[in-house]
Amino acid sequence: MTGFLSVIRRDLRLAFAGGGDVLTLLLFFIIVGAIVPFAVGPDQELLSRIAPGVVWIAAFLSMLLGLDRLFRPDLEDGTLALYRLADLPLSAVIAAKVIVQWLTSALPLIVASPFLAVILTMDLDTFWRTVLSLLLGTPALAAFGAFGAAVTVAIRRGGLLAPILIAPLCVPILIFGIGVIAPLGGPGQGTAAMLFLAALSLMALALTPFAAALAIAWGRSRAPP
């Protein structure tokens, strides 16, 4: 357990001591949301109708962009070899990294989402639903992302490969995430979408660390270091 916590502490320290990474993703999130009104024109009604989707796509893209820093720096400085020989199982290390990934790349976006809500003229009810769906859905995005990063870490310059690989897997998260905000169909659909989204996140958090650990151990033991 101390090993698990120390991985979290170290990665949080690295993420915030540098400062740059977290802020860059946050600005990217805001910029993606902010250019939409310029692209679709100043139609307020249209903007507030598509606002939840815009917020989700902005969050989706900025979370995928941050994937490369998950394992690559550790691979390059030799820490990944250390993790593979640690007392702490590799899957636990990855679970810790997923938690840090969520804290540094999803939580800041959720905190900043009021900015986008104002820019996109969201009403208050929709805004709260958006925050709720982001809270429920982003853990799954972080977990799937860690899996993608683990699969592609063996590939040199595989930086943008993980997002491409992972994007199709994340479509259900997007569908149910939007379903929570703008329920289609009859009453109760919003709740159902919410439950599905929560289930997706729990499943992804529970299973992807093992899959990612397998991908790293297998990939690294066959590739030149």
């Binding site: 170290r10 320290r13 690295l14 001591a17 400085d77 030799g78 070899a81 250390l82 020989l85 007392d87």
Partner: peptide, 18 residues
């Protein structure tokens, strides 16, 4: 008892900012 060995490669696994 966990892994029995220490491996020290070319790379030191030492990171700046810590």
């Amino acid at each position: 008892d966990g892994p029995a060995l220490h491996y020290c490669g070319h790379r030191n696994a030492v990171r700046a900012r810590i």
